[in-house]
């Protein structure tokens, strides 16, 4: 029910995203253009469709990985953009950009390395990984990686630096079909996470109880964290760090799911969130094309504040 509703919202936003831009189209015109890729649909198929598809996949990926990290660490703040996974992925990606390596590979290596570092720093031999330590040390890692990324960019040539700076704000500008192809690689990472609802739910039980219920807790934790880190890295490589999507989608999806973790809802919320932000980016300033990441933060932050305030009042966290 809630899933169907959110799918409808996402589709409506997708249609709007195809219609809105430097030239606005009526819904019928969008549908007509979709049916005619060679003629009137050239702009939609060539420009808006790849942008939309990458935005949907990026948003879904960020929403998923946000929910997974928040659930694993039992903390609504523990999303990849707060605990430094996004920033270490960005650092890896910028390293690759500067050296001419594969950006996606750089982001993946960065994201995995960041996850391992946080896990290692927050590890305690007796009690396992401490969520509070992970969040605090992750904040430190995020600052370190952001600073390192800036240092790299400052030392780079003007062309490289400009490209990296735009990318760092999180943007869907300049996305085309090659990026869609890359985004499709992320689906095998997203699929197991979409299906992980029951495991995530059981991981919220006390550890010993979850294990006694037959859940392979350490393996599930490591597997989910690795998939979510790779997914974050992949999205960062494509669009740059789109702020607040990963942080906001988790709590919003829980709000719709009576407090339970629902990866499908989180993915849909993330996808519609990025699409909405991109619609605003193009509708408000079609000429300047402000980065989508600016709008995800502008919408995401207030929503998140409202939801978190309500949840804290209800003592959910």
């Amino acid at each position: 029910m809630r899933v169907a509703l959110l799918i409808a919202v996402t589709l409506a936003l997708a249609l709007a995203a195809l219609a809105i831009g430097r030239s606005w189209l009526a819904p019928q015109a969008v549908l007509a253009a979709l049916a005619d890729p060679e003629g009137t649909g050239r702009m939609i198929w060539g420009l808006r469709m790849p942008r939309l598809l990458v935005g949907l996949i990026a948003g879904a990926g960020l929403g998923l990985s946000g929910l997974v990290f928040q659930t694993l660490l039992r903390n609504p703040l523990a999303s990849p953009d707060i605990i430094g996974i996004t920033q270490s992925a960005a650092f890896g990606a910028v390293c690759a950009m500067m050296t001419g390596g594969a950006v996606m590979a750089g982001a993946w290596i960065g994201a995995l390395a960041g996850t391992v570092v946080i896990g290692w720093l927050a590890w305690d031999r007796r009690s396992g990984i401490s969520a509070r330590a992970a969040v605090l040390q992750g904040l430190g890692l995020a600052i370190l990686c952001s600073a390192a990324t800036e240092a790299l960019i400052l030392r780079a040539s003007d062309g490289n630096a400009g490209m990296a700076m735009t990318w760092l704000t999180g943007t869907l500008n300049g996305i085309g079909w090659p990026q869609v192809q890359q985004a499709l690689w992320l689906l095998p990472l997203a699929l197991p996470l979409l299906l992980s609802g029951r495991t995530l739910d059981r991981l919220e039980l006390p550890d010993d109880l979850a294990r006694a219920l037959g859940v392979r807790v350490p393996q599930a934790r490591i597997g989910l964290a690795a998939l979510a880190a790779l997914l974050t890295g992949g999205v960062v490589a494509l669009t740059g760090p789109l702020g607040f999507v990963a942080l906001a989608a988790g709590p919003l999806s829980r709000r719709l799911a009576r407090g339970r973790p629902s990866p499908v809802l989180a993915a849909l919320i993330g996808a519609s969130f990025v699409t909405l932000a991109d619609i605003l980016a193009r509708a408000i300033s079609p000429a300047a094309l402000l980065p989508t990441g600016l709008y995800t933060a502008l919408i995401g932050a207030p929503i998140l504040l409202i939801v978190l305030a309500a949840e804290f009042r209800r003592n959910r966290y």
Partner: peptide
């Protein structure tokens, strides 16, 4: 075959 109830756990939110 074997169930374990650990000491004073906290229930997940919303259950």
């Amino acid at each position: 075959r074997i169930a374990l109830l650990p000491q004073s756990g906290e229930a997940p939110a919303g259950l």
